[in-house]
Simulated scan of single mutants.
Amino acid sequence: MRFEVVGIDYDNRINNFMVSARADYEWYLNKTQGSEENLAIQRDVIKGTKPYKNLRADLKMGCILPAIVLAVRNIDASVTENYDPLEGFIVASRDHLDALQSAIGDATPKDIDIVDGLQRTNALRQTFDELEEGDKPTFLARSLRLEIWVNIQFFPLAYRMLLLNAGQRPMSMKHQIDILSGGLAEDLQDLEGIEIIRLKDHKRRIKPGQFHLSSLAQAFQAWMQRSPNVDRTNLVVETMAVDEALDSLGIDLSDNDGNQRDGFRQFVDWMLQLDRALGDSQNRFFGNDTVVLGFAAAIGFAHKNETLQDRLPTAMAAMIASAQSDTENPLGVLTFDQIRRSVDTKRSNVGEATRGLVFRAVREYIMQGGTSPMIECWTQSASMM
């Protein structure tokens, strides 16, 4: 197996180093083994379509693929500190490139995500499986170009991916956020009381604090878009959502104070505290994705609203305290359940109606600075259904 780091560059917009590298197919397929499963909640791998059938045929003939983009976490990239980020064309020493080469080479597949190139990776694996045994060694020895973001945080990577794909629109915003979910899990895993369940774990939520990674990825999208409806089918609406998300991510990245990262982490921390306050008896409340999306959108709305952002911490502190002290109907969950059961399924989509109900109720609670009980907010929100 061969892997070679050939250079480094620095992105001053997202403040991160990117490594340019070459590898043979054998190294790449070994290092990304399981990445398809790690990213199983993203768009389905395309199989059997004519373009990818042609690509597999070209791969057998020795074509060169466009560079694949990876994100590698938890490696020692300290040698990059020797270089000035303002230097436009970084000329790294061979010793430093070798150090990065060794660090990346030691990374395990669980620390490597395919940011751009899942379909090409699948084509490589399918092509390899189709080859005769005698042809496989030659195939595995061919070269592949890689762009590797080292130790990049979730939010800068989200911005970079959304920006690069905004003009091409090869996949929805939801798919792009799903792809980055591994980094999101890494960023949230140290929050007190959280247990993140990945699709490959084959587990279901049985107690407070457990959240499926797919739910958290959708919650991030809802939080960022300030809308509980994350499945966009209208192209114009989807375009507007991406533009708004880019603007939001871009502004917070410019602040250089971690506002974006800390804002979403703060939402998840609040949700964990509320989840624990509800306890096992109301475990189903935050186990419902529609509830999570509604909460995320409402808090994201307040986080980015100049009028409400100062009321948000006070309101959430009041909500948590109320939920912890109310043993009969914390968060007004019983009232919420009654309203949800009253939705006319012949006239309304229950999921969409529930997301809207939660979004409006939580937003109203924040607008009131936590002075109105959640029962009243549920009732007021229901009157708008």
Rank of each mutant, 00 (worst) to 15 (best):
L164G: 03
H175L: 00
L124K: 10
L163G: 00
I112T: 07
L157N: 03
P170N: 04
G167D: 07
D106G: 11
R169C: 00
I177T: 12
D111F: 12
R120F: 03
I179R: 09
D135F: 03
G134I: 05
E130K: 07
I152P: 03
G167L: 06
F128T: 04
L180G: 09
R145V: 05
D106I: 02
E130C: 06
G117P: 08
Q126N: 10
H175A: 15
D116N: 10
F128H: 09
I114G: 08
Q119V: 03
R120E: 03
L162V: 14
E132D: 14
E132S: 10
I112C: 07
A141E: 11
L180V: 11
D135R: 11
G134Y: 06
L124I: 03
S143Q: 15
E133R: 14
G167P: 00
P170C: 06
K174P: 01
R145C: 01
E147G: 08
R120M: 04
K110S: 13
G117C: 12
G105H: 04
I177A: 11
V150M: 05
Q119N: 04
I114F: 10
Y159L: 08
E133Y: 07
D135Y: 07
I112H: 11
L180T: 11
N122S: 15
K174L: 15
R125E: 15
R169V: 11
M171R: 14
F154T: 07
M161Y: 11
D135V: 06
A166E: 13
R169T: 07
P109H: 09
D129G: 12
A107F: 05
P170Y: 12
I104W: 06
A141S: 11
Q168V: 10
L131N: 06
A158K: 13
K110M: 08
L146I: 02
W149N: 13
L163P: 00
Q126A: 12
R120A: 13
K136E: 08
L124S: 13
L144I: 15
L131F: 05
L146M: 11
I148N: 09
E132C: 01
V115Y: 14
W149K: 09
P137T: 05
V115M: 10
I152V: 14
F155W: 14
S172V: 01
I114N: 07
D129E: 15
D135K: 10
N151E: 07
F155P: 02
Q119W: 03
L118V: 02
R120P: 09
M171G: 00
A123T: 08
Y159K: 04
G167M: 02
K136N: 07
L162R: 00
I148V: 14
G134A: 14
M171N: 06
E133S: 11
M171C: 12
L140V: 02
K136I: 10
R160G: 01
M161I: 14
K110V: 14
F128Q: 13
I177Q: 03
D116F: 05
